[in-house]
Amino acid sequence: MAEVRYREALNQALREEMQADESVFIMGEDVGVFQGAFKVTAGLLEEFGEKRVRDTPISENTIVGMGVGAAMGGLRPVVEIMTINFSLLAMDQIVNSAASIRYMFNAQVKVPLVIRMPQGGGHQLGPTHSHSLEAWFLHVPGLLVAVPSTPADAKGLLKAAIRDDNPVIFIEHEALYGKKGEVPENGEPLRFGEAAVRREGDDVTIVGVSRMAATALQAAETLAAEHEVEADVIDPRTLRPLDLDTILESVRKTNRAVIVEEGWPHGGVGANFAALIQEQAFDYLDAPVARVTGADIPMPYSKPLEQAAFPHEEHVVQAALATFRDL
C-alpha cells in the first residue's frame, strides 16, 4: 500500500471516478484554476478540462441547486463548498431539494449528488469558517453523511459517495488534509454504514467522529499506558447510515461509552448516539453515556481560546476515567 495524504487520497478518488465515469464532474469555488482552497482538486482541470471541472461564482445555494438539477438530469456532480459554514447558505437546496426530491417524486428521479466540504477548528479562521456541523446534516432524512478520518476512508468513501444514487454530504476536516496514511491501491470503494474498530479493549467504548476519531485513538493509548484502561475505539465513518450494531456490540462488552465530537453539545451527534445507546443497551450500561464535545460557543479567533474550545486527548481521557470513578 502506498502512503498518501488525506487530500491526495481525495484527489485520487475524484480522478479515478472521473476517469471511470464521464457523467462525474466537479463544481465549486476555486476548484479549477486555483486547484481548490485545500488543493484537493489539484491537476483535475488540466486533465479533464473546463467542462468537467467548473469554477463557479461565490453563490453556494446556486452551486448546490445546479448540482441538484444536473444530478436529476443524469449526471453525477461533485460540488465543493469551501467550508462547512458556507454550506448554510445552501441549506435550502440541500434540505428542500437534494434530500427531498426523490421522496417528492416517488423515486421517479434521483439525486446522485456529492457535496464535499471541510469542517473543524484549529486554524484561527474564526467562527464563520471553523465550525463542525455534521449534526445539522445528520438531522435530515434523505441525506447520507460521511465523516472520514483517514486517507484510506477519505478515498474509499468518496468513491462510494460518487457511485451512490442518494445525495451525500461528504464532510472532510481541515486539520486532516495533511495527514498521511496507507491507502489501498485497488481503488475499491468502501461501504457506507460500516464502522471501523480502530483499537480493541474491554473496559470502555470510545466513539470518535471525524477528526475526533484520531483524538479518541490517542486518548485510548494514554488510557492504556497510564491508567490500565483498555478502550475499544470506534470510528463510525458514516453517520447516516450508521453502523449502530458495532457500537452496541462494543458497549455491551465494555458497559461504558464515551462519544467524542468536535461539534456543539446540544442536539449533537453525541446526544444522538447517547440516546440510541441507552434505548438499545440500557441494561448493559455501568455509567451514563459520556460526551466530549466542542464548547457551547461560537468558535473563538484567539488561538488559546480556540484550542480550549474543541476536545483534546486529555479531555477524552478524563471523560473515560469519569465513567469509572469520581475524579
Binding site: V258, P265, A274, A287, P288, V289, A290, R291, V292, T293, G294, A295, D296, I297, P304, Q307, A308, A309, F310, P311, H312, E314, H315, V316, Q318, A319, A322, T323, L327
Partner: peptide, 20 residues
C-alpha cells in the same frame, strides 16, 4: 463550555461530559 469544565478542575477544556 469552558466555564463548566473549570469547575471540574479540567482547565481550559472544551468538553462537556455527561458522565461526570
Amino acid at each position: 463550555g469552558p466555564a463548566s469544565q473549570a469547575e471540574r478542575g479540567d482547565e481550559g477544556a472544551a468538553t462537556a461530559t455527561a458522565a461526570a
